[in-house]
Design a protein around this nucleic acid. Structure first.
Length: 866
RNA sequence: GCCGAAGUGGCGGAAUUGGCAGACGCGCGCGACUCAAAAUCGCGUUCCUUCGGGAGUGAGGGUUCGAUUCCCUCCUUCGGCACCA
């Protein structure tokens, strides 16, 4: 053997091709109405300093897919940029004395280099960097647009504050049971601050509609739950002094069972309604609740606390006077901050009523028909059990008591028998679907109203000493363990004990009552959301300044368009004081009012960085455009984003904000279309080899640069596609990458080594099976790119490679062989572009770039030749 | 507690309009090449087996000629929400 073909040396070929692609501007996306467009987008990185293997995992398959679509003939735009504002820059500045700007831009320079080593087809001409003044000018402009249209407002309220990051956080940035900061894991505290909010709640209903977009079920569910729409009614109760107290309820059909009210301790009416006798207790309770942090509230569990404020309200459906309490299980931030308590059909209210001895009245029939009766020893005369048995009513003895679960059809019969057998001076009862107390023959009492319940309780207390300690009838029944599962339920069912509405079936009850309330003028249908408005003020330096000026005469004035951007000053102290660094600047905040030219002050907070990332996909369209946030011509051609990929951890943050922005801008006439991203796919996460999240402190971080040096970018790319289900991710596998490396070497050998000697006979069957597997691979690879199943793309390519290997001796001289090798290279090109390009060129193919070759299909077409 | 997703060899993972379970890769075993090793190549590799077979996709049940795939119950893991009226 004298003529050894050159070995596969990725370090020699990869950089060469990257430079050539760049030089020829191969991946510059230009508007071309003749071709179908495809906007492929992957979530922009934060310039933390080093490209992480996680970036590779997220971006490589996206890039491969974009390259695939390009080969299919689409005009593909695949842009990249940096989400460059944010806390890490400032923290690095504090720790190392580097200016956040310098830190950020040098990181960006480094990451650009690293990103290029991936061999991705990014259009660097479209790069956008969110901390560039030309970028944040338009972030500010969008803010002023929202302000002018009443969608941005300032409000003093208790907000979540991270004591480590020294700034406020949006609600969705507070995570976990201990309510910690999403970024640094420090538990948050509450502060009362005057802050800017965006009215995202105005778009709640629209954000619930995912029609026409192809997003993962999981993200849609997360967003739906986060928005948390509940439909019901708002009902007005009146205090003795006729103050209206509004409550929100999803169960207007239970109004007749509202036996008390609960207001949030912070409810504005509390001070006014509290009677003098209760003032001290109420003040003490409020003080205690305010002192407690949310975490302590959580720690105290669900044990209900509360206090009676001395006042009563009138239930609008029956005029009943019901006591008003305050309790911290009612949240001032949800609904109206006040509830009607229906203890018989709401678990929390039930618990509260039981604890504080408040009355309970069942008003909804049990749909499951569960009916129970329990007669302690000595309650019934002998023969009772036998009489029941004769009726086929099954009972069991529990601690001497005769406990029966009565079939619905036998309830009436049971009552008759019990009447006959109850001992004089004793009683028994039937509960569940019926609430009837049996004192003797011809002597039963039905619990169908609050007063009736009181009377029954009084009778029982006369007969039975232990009952005298019970404050309510329900408390008496709760003492019987056997009854517990039948005393409370929250199902829909026929209305009972509800005046004229008694008997209304569960299916229609809610609507009938709501309609009636509306006629009476004491209620209306209402919808409440869990979603809160988006708090965007941050008390940090490295962010977009809020373009608002406070004028003593004119109030809040947005900075006019021609004065944007409000530049971030560079000469600041960024010590973490808890105040905005911009506030401490000697003169930055001093300005003049854009309206009246009198001295005025700038807002010294900066914006949540999620604002920057809510519209970056629009800036990519035309990052240098000066007459607006983007060039409308580019928008018209490229939008919406056809495929958006990134982590699912952004489901309730970035991915909801960006939809909100899009809809706002649409309503302002700036954009069009319902949604910004037509299709979304989430990738999973790469963990350390130990199965733990990669982190420097654990020492399990995989450095992509080192892997590229060792194996080459193509191997790393193909391994990341091959080793995992993309949606799942998993631990970095140190072993599997060797297999991918071997595969590329085998491909190299196949394409470069001399074939069988001239004149070697071809086995027709083998040539045919080579052709068959070639076409099967084309189909498999195409289908799997469409469905983001990247691991099976690589395995299909390996299968084809193995077949080539095996059939070389017998089919290596056939046309099918040449077609198969060329097809393999083309099918590999999206995943492993450098080696494919190199071998393509080495084979003397006339088309200069493999990617220019048209689509591969399974449709009949001549064997591909280069 | 509520909602959602997922459980397949020693490992990563294939296969679902219901049709040969374990593709592809790792690892492992045997062999070739080599003085030797690495690399490479070839063969084998779900488990049990008395070598005839038998069992097998988290567990149990059901539908079916046939179930990893569909239905019911349960278990485990992960993610989200959690006093949201």
């Amino acid at each position: 053997m004298t003529n050894h073909p050159p070995r596969y040396t990725p370090e020699q070929i990869e950089q060469r091709w990257q430079e050539r692609w760049e030089l020829d501007g191969l991946y510059r996306a230009k508007i071309d109405p003749a071709r179908p467009k495809y906007y492929a987008l992957t979530m922009l990185p934060y310039p933390s300093g080093d490209l992480h293997i996680g970036h590779w995992y997220a971006m490589t398959p996206s890039d491969a897919r974009a390259r695939y679509l390009r080969m299919r003939g689409y005009n593909v735009m695949y842009p990249i940029g940096f989400d460059a504002f944010g806390l890490p820059a400032e923290n690095a500045a504090i720790q190392r004395g580097i200016h956040p700007k310098q830190w950020t831009y040098s990181n960006i320079a480094n990451m650009r280099k690293q990103l290029r080593s991936m061999g991705a087809m990014w259009d660097w001409d479209r790069e956008a960097v969110s901390c560039d003044p030309e970028y944040y000018k338009w972030t500010q402009w969008i803010f002023t647009q929202l302000f002018k249209h009443g969608l941005a407002y300032k409000k003093l309220s208790p907000v979540d504050w991270c004591p480590n990051c020294n700034t406020t956080l949006a609600r969705e940035q507070v995570w976990g049971d201990d309510r910690h900061c999403e970024r640094c894991k420090t538990p948050v505290i509450k502060k009362n601050l005057n802050q800017w909010y965006f009215r995202i709640t105005k778009y709640a209903d629209e954000l619930l509609n995912f029609e026409g977009i192809d997003w993962p079920e999981r993200v849609r569910t997360l967003q739906t739950n986060w928005i948390g729409r509940s439909a019901g009614a708002q009902v007005t109760f009146l205090s003795a002094a006729a103050d209206p107290i509004e409550v929100f309820t999803t169960r207007p059909d239970t109004l007749w069972g509202a036996t008390f009210m609960v207001l949030a301790p912070e409810h504005p009416l509390v001070a006014k309604l509290t009677t003098p006798a209760q003032t001290a207790a109420v003040d003490a309770y409020i003080a205690e609740v305010t002192r407690r942090t949310d975490i302590e509230r959580e720690a105290t569990g669900k044990d209900k606390t509360g206090v009676f404020i001395g006042a009563f309200a009138t239930n609008p459906v029956n005029g009943a006077q019901i006591p008003i309490w305050i309790a911290d299980y009612v949240l001032v931030t949800y609904g109206t901050g006040a509830i009607m308590a229906v203890p018989a059909h709401d678990e929390r209210d039930f618990e509260f009523a039981l604890k504080f001895g408040l009355p309970i009245l069942p008003v909804i029939d049990r749909p499951d028909g569960l009916t129970k009766s329990c007669a302690p020893a000595g309650t019934m005369q002998p023969g009772f059990a036998a009489a029941l048995r004769a009726e086929n009513i099954a009972c069991e003895e529990l601690d001497g008591a005769l406990c029966c679960t009565i079939p619905p059809s036998k309830v009436a019969r049971y009552v008759e028998i019990a009447q006959r057998f109850v001992q004089p001076g004793k009683w028994t009862e039937v509960i569940g679907t019926r609430w009837e107390f049996i004192f003797g023959p011809q002597d039963t009492a039905v619990w169908n109203s609050q007063p009736a319940g009181q009377e029954i309780l009084a009778r029982c207390q006369q007969l039975d000493a232990p009952a005298r300690s019970k404050r309510t009838l329900m408390e008496l029944l709760w003492a019987v363990e056997f009854y517990r599962d039948a005393l409370y339920h929250s199902e829909y069912g026929a209305m009972i004990n509800s005046g004229d509405f008694t008997g209304t079936p569960g299916a229609t009850a809610k609507n009938k009552v709501t309609d009636w309330l509306q006629q009476q003028g004491s209620g209306k249908t209402a919808v409440t959301y869990r979603l809160r408005d988006w708090l965007i003020s941050r008390q940090r330096y490295w962010g977009t300044p809020i373009p608002i000026v406070y004028c003593p005469a004119c109030g809040q004035v947005p900075v006019p368009d021609d004065q944007l951007p409000v530049q971030l000053p560079e000469d600041v102290e960024w010590k973490p004081t808890g105040e905005s660094p911009l506030k401490l600047h000697p003169n930055w905040s001093n300005t003049t009012c854009p309206k009246c030219s009198q001295p005025a002050q700038r807002d010294t907070d900066t914006m949540d960085t999620f604002m920057c990332s809510s519209w970056y996909h629009l800036r990519y369209l035309s990052p240098k455009f000066a007459d607006g946030p983007f060039d409308p011509r580019e928008f018209a051609y490229w939008m919406p984003v056809d495929s958006y990929t990134g982590g699912a951890e952004h489901a309730t943050m970035h991915l909801i904000y960006t939809r909100f922005f899009h809809k706002v801008l649409r309503d302002l006439g700036i954009t069009s279309g319902e949604e910004p991203m037509a299709q979304l796919r989430n990738q999973g996460q790469i963990l350390g080899p130990d199965g733990q999240r990669m982190s420097k402190s654990r020492g399990n971080v995989i450095d992509p640069d080192a892997q590229v040096r060792k194996y080459g970018a193509d191997t790393v790319r193909a391994f990341l596609m091959f080793g995992y289900r993309w949606v799942d991710g998993g631990p970095w596998g140190t072993d599997n990458i060797e297999g991918v490396s071997r595969w590329l070497n085998r491909v190299w050998a196949l394409a470069t080594e001399a074939g069988p000697a001239a004149g070697t006979k071809t086995d027709a069957d083998d040539a045919r099976s080579l052709q068959r597997i070639t076409h099967q691979t084309i189909k498999k690879v195409s289908d799997d790119y469409e469905s983001y199943e990247f691991n099976t793309i690589i395995s299909a390519l390996m299968v084809l490679t193995n077949a080539l290997h095996k059939l070389r001796a017998t089919a290596g001289a056939s046309p099918a062989w040449e077609a198969a090798v060329n097809t393999l290279l083309k099918l590999m090109a999206p995943a492993t572009p450098h080696i494919a390009e190199e071998l393509w060129a080495q084979r003397g193919c006339r088309t200069p770039y493999i990617r220019k070759h048209g689509r591969n299909t399974t449709q009949r077409q001549p064997p591909m030749r280069c």
